[in-house]
Amino acid sequence: MEIPVDATLILVEDFLTSHGLTAVREQSTTANPVLVADLNETAPSAPLILLGHLDTVFPVGTAKQRPGVIDGERLTGPGSNDMKPGAVMAIATLLALKEANYQAHPVRLILVTDEEILHKNAPTKETIARLSKGAVAGFNFESADPDNGVVTGRKGGAIVDLTVTGVAAHSGKEPEKGRSAVLELAHQIIKAEALTDQAAGKLVNCGLVNGGTSENIIPDHAPTGIAVRFTTVAGTTVEMKVATKIDSMDTLPGTAALLEKLQASARLLHQPVPHGKQTGGASDAGVLTAHNIPTLCALGIMGGGAHTAHEYGLVSSMFDRAALVATTIAHLD
């Protein structure tokens, strides 16, 4: 049975093919394929990258429980902000350039399927880097805040697997022999979350917790996912493993010039001029900037509430921002 991201892949592949573009799956032998489509592959100049992802954070079945709805200007539903519309916008930008007979640069569309888990257990970061080699600019269609900002720098991110091991025992007959891994994990979570310092850019979130096998057994195993260092206590052991990480999106020497070109395009289109901003939340733009490719991020739909049941996007911003990126690319040297 196909999971939703597989069905989305097929839908996008068919759509691109029907519009005269070839879609190719990279690292297709893994569970996390990367979809690539090219325009002007043989052009002699350096390539440009359109980047996005097709996965969301929501479990299978969420879309059936609360399907996507457009009510006037407001789009709601799972992925309505992060980032189904952004993927559509990236595709629309590529097709707009094709229809305009754009030929100045090769343009490569890269859509990944595991961004929300920071490409855990897959070589996606390396695949993005390989597919983007030699590029002179990147445009990432992550969702944007409704303030008309464009992201020029982001924090990095990591997923750290942490497992506490205790001693199992019957909670009624011989509780003194047990050492609760769940109890110790609770203490570690409190310590970890206390390290958050938003003003200093330190963000810690223990977002997935498990442990125990029965209500009447002192649990000897309890994993979670955090991104901090900590100390252990007597009777338990703690194992920490960095499962995956993504580089911060750095503001490069060429970032300001790329933003200025985007702003000039906004004036040409009689759109409000976007401003540059720094933000938290890692994205694949960090993969591009780590390889010295000036990149603008949050070029997708404007809205809010990402990763929650109340996420939304503003429909008109989809057209406006796709047109803005396409116009910017059309005027690059």
Rank of each mutant, 00 (worst) to 15 (best):
V34W: 03
H53V: 03
T213K: 13
S171I: 06
D38G: 13
K241N: 14
N216S: 07
A199I: 11
N81I: 12
K177V: 01
K155P: 06
H310K: 03
D6Y: 03
P274I: 07
A186I: 10
V233E: 05
L39Y: 02
E174V: 15
A100T: 04
R267A: 10
T328C: 14
G254D: 03
G304L: 09
N140E: 08
L268R: 13
S317M: 07
L262H: 12
G153R: 14
Y312E: 02
A31S: 09
G212D: 10
E73F: 12
A129C: 04
S18V: 03
G178L: 00
I189E: 08
I10K: 05
K245R: 10
S283Y: 04
V325Y: 07
S143A: 15
L111D: 11
I117Y: 06
T244G: 00
C206F: 14
A227G: 14
M249Y: 13
A330L: 07
N81F: 15
C206H: 11
R130D: 13
D82Y: 08
A122D: 04
T328Y: 04
A158S: 14
T8R: 11
A90F: 07
A104L: 09
T328W: 01
L185C: 10
T255V: 12
V315E: 00
I159G: 08
A31W: 05
